[in-house]
Write a protein that binds this DNA or RNA. Structure first.
Ligand SMILES: [Mn+2]
Ligand SMILES: [Mn+2]
Ligand SMILES: [Mn+2]
Ligand SMILES: [Mn+2]
Lengths: 229, 229
DNA sequence: TAAACTTATTAGGTGAGCCAAAATAGGAGG
DNA sequence: CCTCCTATTTTGGCTCACCTAATAAGTTTA
């Protein structure tokens, strides 16, 4: 059917308002969104034409069967996103609410379903709660970048993994002090842009352009240079 | 500065294209977004005026310092969202990519930062990997609704918790067989809408409207009825 | 070097989603 | 039933982000 974000929000708000007010009118939506009444009237007209709401002039607003269905689809996404942000990531009330109400319109069916499963799992599995606690404790203390050399999945590229012509930004130099100093003396400082300009047959040595000049290093050394991809 | 979604996408795409192509031109962006060339020209003009890109007529496109900064801000959100969807939720490549590139524009700073920490935690903590595996295994087999009575956090409301005038949808009836049968014979089936129309002093009994008629039940029984809020 | 092709720009439009101001309808009280 | 006041609708306008068609610049190619 292809509803726009704003149409979805109107439907959702009517759905929520009806839970509390029995009768929903233009004014209620105006107040909820802090929007001009003219805009709401216009929107209701459009939704009526699409058979999603019933609204007679100067009267009450109601969702049709179809409108109710759409509203519920949107609201279920809102809820799960809110719960994930608020209860798992511990995002503040306000940001959880806002982010959820934006993301609800764009999240794919698959992501939505997987997120439902994830929350479900976290809720049911007893082992998880302690781990979640651990995470929640760590949240305040930890630095958190997801950009250093963590586990298996989600690891950053290393310089030797860049292909010919590719560019990257140096993130971190590893290895022993001596090597680190040598590399850094050559100009390889975190934040610097590099571009691979030549690679020998077996990937060794590697020639790159950095700060305007060319530099050649051994593959073994390149492995110590983390690249922000 | 307030960049629109489309401006952010243009900046991000220029940033990404420059990693592979050194020179970015209108045509590259046209191909990337499958959009009319006129639209891209127009967008570059607007971005130039905002001092985010440099672009002389018929020439190459470059990010300014400011543009680079914005592009990186957007792209870092893209990456973390992608990683979360793809590697933690196991969402397909395509949906992870699309969802990430939509959400990157709307996620709050706080949610972004918490998500980074979360991914970081999952990556670093060894206990988590096994648990994550467990989740990944469960993903195919489980039903998953996040809407039944799970743990402490994220629990659903029960009928007795609805306030006067509020409405809800029956999700599930709990309690022993006999009670369940009795309630369901009265019309309380999952999916049914209920609305609280009267509540006695101490919340007992509760009168509700359901399928057009009124029904009164004891608070003790109402506790067994889960409501989708 | 002029025609042919590719790429980019200009000009003129469209629809979504908002707004302010003016016009109207409905309801409450005299 | 007339008068106010509030809620709603109508009207006309605006910005954003697209589009098509016409034109112009740049690049090959014969
Ligand atoms: Mn929303
Ligand atoms: Mn919402
Ligand atoms: Mn994007
Ligand atoms: Mn993106």
């Amino acid at each position: 059917m292809e509803l726009t974000k704003s149409m979805e929000d109107y439907l959702e708000s009517i759905y929520i308002l009806k839970k509390q007010k029995r009768y929903v009118r233009i004014k209620d939506i105006v107040e909820k969104f802090n929007i001009a009444a003219a805009s709401v009237t216009e929107a209701m007209l459009k939704l009526s034409k699409k058979n999603l709401v019933e609204h007679e002039k100067y009267g009450y607003i109601d969702l049709t069967e179809k409108g109710m269905e759409e509203a519920r689809r949107v609201y279920s996404r809102h809820k799960i996103l809110y719960k994930f942000l608020k209860n798992i990531l511990l995002v503040s009330e306000g940001n959880s609410e806002n982010d959820a109400c934006e993301m609800e319109h764009i999240i794919s069916k698959e992501s939505y379903e997987k997120l439902v499963k994830f929350c479900d799992f976290v809720n049911k599995d007893t082992d998880t709660s302690s781990l979640l606690d651990k995470f929640h404790n760590s949240i305040d203390s930890k630095e958190g970048s997801c950009n250093d050399n963590g586990g298996d999945k989600m690891k950053n590229k290393r310089l030797n993994e860049l292909k010919l012509g590719e560019t990257g930004i140096i993130l971190k130099i590893e290895g022993d002090k001596k090597l680190r100093k040598r590399l850094m003396d050559m100009g390889m400082l975190p934040g610097t842009d590099v571009k691979i300009v030549k690679v020998a047959p077996l990937g060794d040595p590697i020639e790159m352009k950095i700060k305007g000049f060319h530099l050649t290093i051994r593959k073994e050394d390149a492995k110590n240079i983390l690249i922000e991809d």
